[in-house]
Design a protein around this nucleic acid. Structure first.
Lengths: 132, 132
DNA sequence: TGTACTGTAATAATCAACTAATACACAACA
DNA sequence: TGTTGTGTATTAGTTGATTATTACAGTACA
């Protein structure tokens, strides 16, 4: 029994939607460290998509440290997720207050996005400054 | 004489790179309201790319309210950018301090990006809450 | 009015992201 | 040990974003 619900016609790639849902499930505590995720084939069948699409989602989640794949055994929520959740809560609070301030200043969603991309690449520039 | 320098092998679409450079020029004050941008054909030739790629950048900048295209006359920095720049400066400061705090909490660039997307879609959910 | 400059539009080619099809390899257990 | 479950790997097809090709249309000015 799964709570994953994907929207094939949303334009958002299926593997990304699935990743989001897993991350969300972890963040809300609906899934916890050690829990087994649905089998690749079973989930593919239930969501009517190709097993390789599920694989892609699971592999990227593994790269993000959220999921652990065990050959022949299944996919599981990684143990490291608990510590992660605590720090992410604090970080989310920071982000929330920043976004609220930005909205109250009249910034649109697009602009907020851009301001962040700006800031993140400015960071890169600083990091590389010494090398050039 | 232009300061635009694109990197064809960066994987970032040329029209986006060009948009960024124009926006940056406006933000730093290198270009001001009313200034004429390089001609579509001239810039395409100088940057060794197709005129339509320049067109795409200019049109999206127009949609963002940064550029104004005048048929037969040229492309110009929109008058509205001056007011825009002031409010954007304040907003950028908010973003900068938020990102700094997040980095000091150990968040990676990817995580920061995700935290923001999270927050922006949470906002949508709230907005639509009453309707469902 | 015509020439030389400007942006505009429609269509086609290219390329990378995404998804699918199929076969391989490890683990558990009767 | 073999059967049934699990994840892994390779390769090919599809689709949409990006860029290119080509022809059209407005503006200024000698």
């Amino acid at each position: 029994m799964n709570f994953f619900r994907l929207n094939a016609s949303s334009g958002v790639p299926l593997y990304l939607q699935l990743m989001e849902q897993v991350k969300h499930a972890v963040e809300t505590g609906a899934m916890r460290a050690g829990d087994q995720l649905p089998t690749i084939r079973a989930l593919a069948q239930e969501l009517v998509m190709n097993p390789n699409t599920v694989v892609r989602a699971y592999r990227e989640l593994e790269h993000d440290g959220i999921v652990e794949l065990r050959h022949g055994l299944g996919a599981f929520i990684s143990e490291s997720v608990e510590a992660r959740r605590k720090s992410m809560r604090k970080a989310q609070a920071v982000v929330q207050s920043a976004v609220e301030r930005l909205r109250s200043m009249g910034a649109t969603e697009e602009e907020i996005r851009r301001l962040f991309e700006n800031e993140l690449s400015a960071m890169h520039a600083e990091t590389l400054e010494g090398k050039q």
